[in-house]
């Protein structure tokens, strides 16, 4: 029930981002709304559900982006593996610490994309563009993740049983 609810919300958020953000001049601050869900589900619902969520969110982001095939799945699975390995070391005591982790993950994802491009195609055509957006994306994703964390916690308290 929980995983289904979280997945549905994350997919709605991603589609909503694609549909609605074209109106607002927020090209510089486009958040990665999938990232907070991947990290939350992996940390709090276990690696099995986290993996499933990562795969679906990565695929949906790739469908709604001009990203090269496989790239979003690769970076998102890498983040999932990183979070899984660091599970015991990441200490989330509030929505703010969660937002730092989400922001940091966006930075790691950006570098992973650059490494992937370099390794597989031997070119860094998009490097300046990716570098240009790393910090604003990380800040804004961190900011958005505060609200996402609060929203999930509220849904847990109000509608779903807490584990």
């Amino acid at each position: 029930m929980k995983i289904a609810s979280y997945m549905l919300i994350s997919i709605i958020f991603i589609i909503f981002e694609s549909a609605i953000l074209s109106i607002f001049p927020v090209e510089f601050f486009k958040p990665d709304v999938g990232m907070p869900f991947i990290i939350y589900i992996t940390l709090f619902l276990g690696p099995g559900t986290g993996f499933l969520a990562t795969l679906i969110i990565g695929l949906f982001q790739e469908i709604l982006s001009n990203a090269p095939p496989g790239s979003m799945i690769f970076t998102k699975i890498s983040i999932f593996l990183l979070v899984t390995f660091l599970k015991g070391k990441l200490y989330i005591d509030s929505k703010y610490s969660f937002s730092y982790i989400c922001g940091g993950s966006v930075v790691v994802e950006s570098f992973l994309f650059l490494v992937l491009s370099l390794l597989s195609k031997g070119e860094l055509k998009n490097v300046m563009n990716v570098f240009f957006y790393i910090i604003p994306n990380a800040i804004f994703t961190g900011f958005i993740s505060i609200f996402i964390f609060s929203m999930i916690e509220y849904i847990n308290m109000r509608f779903l049983s807490r584990e």
Partner: peptide, 15 residues
Amino acid sequence: RVIGEDVKNWFKCII
């Protein structure tokens, strides 16, 4: 009609 745009700002596409 344009119904969406790229969710990543690294790439530029419309849907």
